[in-house]
Design a binder for these strands. Sequence first.
DNA 1: GAAGTGACCGCAAACGTTTGCGACAACATT
DNA 2: AATGTTGTCGCAAACGTTTGCGGTCACTTC
Lengths: 327, 327
Amino acid sequence: MTTTLKKLAEVSGLSISTVSRALKNHPDISEKTKALVVELASVLDYEPDANAVHLRTKDNHLFGLIVPSVSNFFYDSCISAIEKESRKNNYSLMILQSGDNPDIELNNVRLCRQNRVSGLFACLSSSTENIDGFLKLKEVDIPVIFFDKVPERTDCHKVCVADTASATIAANAIISKRKKRILALFGNEQLLITKKRYKAFTETIQHSQEQIQLITASASSDVEAELLTKKNLDQHPDTIFCMSDEILTGVMKVLQHLRLKVPEEIAVIAISNGFIPTLYYPQITYVETSGVKLGQLAFSSMMTCLSGGTFTQDLTTESVLIEGGSL
Amino acid sequence: MTTTLKKLAEVSGLSISTVSRALKNHPDISEKTKALVVELASVLDYEPDANAVHLRTKDNHLFGLIVPSVSNFFYDSCISAIEKESRKNNYSLMILQSGDNPDIELNNVRLCRQNRVSGLFACLSSSTENIDGFLKLKEVDIPVIFFDKVPERTDCHKVCVADTASATIAANAIISKRKKRILALFGNEQLLITKKRYKAFTETIQHSQEQIQLITASASSDVEAELLTKKNLDQHPDTIFCMSDEILTGVMKVLQHLRLKVPEEIAVIAISNGFIPTLYYPQITYVETSGVKLGQLAFSSMMTCLSGGTFTQDLTTESVLIEGGSL
DNA sequence: GAAGTGACCGCAAACGTTTGCGACAACATT
DNA sequence: AATGTTGTCGCAAACGTTTGCGGTCACTTC
C-alpha cells in the first residue's frame, strides 16, 4: 500500500489536517510536531498524490505539448527547451504526437483538456484545417501557444522562427559575395513557411543592384531535392540556397557524388537549426533558426499568458548568420 | 466554468450518478435518458476531469519517461515509438529530462511517483550510481523498464540494443570484405556500451583466419574523433569502423576534407540508428541499432509487466546490416 | 477570578468522479 | 391480494488532499 496522509495520521496519532500542515511547514504547527511528522513521512516514503492535490487545488502544474513527431531534429531541440524551462518552473510536460494526423491531433487536444493542463503548446499537423478544438480551450481558460506550424488566423498566440528575416539574411549574404547564378530550392509549396521564405528570398535578390540569375524549384522531400539538384546543375549555378535541412541533405548528397569542391566550384548556404550544416566539410554557412530559442520564446510567451497577459502575442525568434566555409 | 457531472445533473434534473452512468452506456439507464444526457454533454462541452477519475479509479493510464535529453537522434526515435505505442493503448506519456544530472533524475522519479504513473521508462544519466529511487517504485508496484543506458544489477527489467551482436556483425562484414588494416574508433571508455562493443569487435577480428592489423582508439566527442582520425590516417588503414553516429560524423568530416574516395581509397562502416549514414554519398554501410525497435521492445516489456509478468526481463533488439556503398 | 491572549490542533466540507446498494414504480405471476 | 420480477434511477461513501473555522488548554492581565 502507498502511504497517504491518513496513514501518517493514524500512525502518529495526529489528525490528517495537522499532518498535512506539518508537511507544508505551516506556522500553526509546533516545531516538535513538524519534526515528528517529517521524520515519519520520510520513513514511510510518503509522496503526495498529485491527482488528489490537483483535484483540490485546481492547478495541476502541467503543460501539454502536441507536435507531429518528436523525432525530428528541429522539434526535438524545441521540445527539449520547453521541457527544461517547464521543469525549472515546477511544471511537468505531457507530450503527445499527432503523427501529422488531424484526427489524432484533436484527440490529443481532448486529452489535454481532460487533464486540465495549465497550458498547451501546439505545433499543427500539416493538414490541419479546423482548429475549433484548440479554440475551445480558450473558453475554459487554457492558453494555447502555437509554435512553428501555426494557424493563419490572427486571434491566436504564435511564436515562429523568423521566416522572412532569415530568408532575407541568406539572400543578402549571397549578394554580398557577388554570386551571379543562384539555384534556390524550397520546400513544400503549400506550407506557409515556404511561401514566406520564397517571397522574401526572391524579392531580396531581385531588388539588389546586381545582375543575378535566379533559378527556383520546390521539393517536398530530400530525395526530390536530390533529383532537382541534379537536373538543374547543367545550368551551372555558382550558388545553391537550401530552405531547410531536408533540402540541404539532398543537395549535399549530389555535391558529394559529383565531387564538386565547396565553395570553389559551387557555394552553398542554408536555413537550418544548426546541426546538419556542421556535418560537412567545409561546414555549411547557414542562417540559424534555433529550435532552442523558439522553445524558450514559446515558454516565456506561455508564462506571460498565465500571469494575466491580455494581448495576443505573435512573436518571432531572431535569426543570425553562422559562417561556415561554404559560401 | 468548466462543465462537471454536477452541472449536467442540475441542468438535466437527473442525479449525478445517473448522468455518470448514462455517459458510460450503463445498462441500468434507459435509452431515452442516455440520449438526453449525451446530447447535453456535447452541447456543454463536457470532458471528464482526469484527476478526479484517476483519484477514484487508482489507475491514471499514464507512463513516465526519463531520459538525459530528448534532443538526441537516437532517443528521439525511441521516445517517438514509445509515445506512439502508449497512445495506441490509451496511455499518456509524461516525458522528463534529467539533463544527464542524477539529482534532477531523482527528482523526476519522485515526480513520476507523485503522479502515480502506471509504469516508468528510464534511461539513466551517465553518472548515475545510486538507483534506490527507482527501486523504491517497485515497492509501490510501479514497474520500471530501463532502456539503453541501464543499471548493471540483474534484478531490473532492461531492454538494450544488441551491443555485442552489432559489433560482431560489423567486424564480420569487414572480414568478409578481406580488409587488412582497420582503424576502429570507440566512444567514451567508461560506458558499458563501449566496453561491450570494444570486446566483441576486437575479439571477432582477432579470432578470424585472416591476418588483420587493428588500430583502436577512443573518442568521447565528434571533435575528438576528428582529431584521432587525422592522427591515425598516416598508418594507412583501408577501413574505418565507427562505434556510433557521433564518431562517424567526426570521421566523415576528415574524409571529406582530404577528399578521400569512399570506399575505393578507404572503406567506412558504422553502428548507427540509421539517419546519419544516409546523409553521405555513398551512403555509409552500417549495423542498425534501431531506436524505434528499442522503443517498441520497451513498451511490450512494460505491457507484460503490467499484465502480471513475473520474470525480470533482460531483452535486446536484433541488429541487422544495412548495406550502403561505403564498404 | 473573570476575561483576554496565543499556541496548537481537529472537524468537516470541498474538489469531480465511480459504484454498491437500496428505492420505487409498473407489471406479471401465483 | 400477496409476492416476484424487471427496468430505472438516486443516496451516499470513497479516493487523498487542502483549508476555513472553531475548539482546547495554559498562561497572562487587570
